[in-house]
Amino acid sequence: MITGFVALYIFMLAAFTGYEIIGRVPTILHTPLMSGSNFVHGIVLVGAMVALGNADGFWETLIGFVGTILAAGNAVGGYVVTERMLEMFKSSKD
């Protein structure tokens, strides 16, 4: 269990990591990068799977089921469109 200040430290370090990653990116990659970061938060899928696996009763199960559909859409869709966009970025030297 991650608690208290350890959680705060993790939040802080991860936030700086995200900030640094974007800080020096050329504008030409902003759209693919937004799409790529959209894919990365698709990791919510693992949380949705755990929530559905442990759900009790009808309503929790239904919400977990819908949540898992949505999360899978986020992860798969985010990957497909990002890959399609990046596939097209070629240099004239390639």
């Binding site: 991650i2 993790i10 991860a14 974007i22």
Partner: peptide, 15 residues
Amino acid sequence: MIIAGMVVGAAGSLL
């Protein structure tokens, strides 16, 4: 989820 979410949260805010 904590790490990936927070990295995207910060990167997305800057973007």
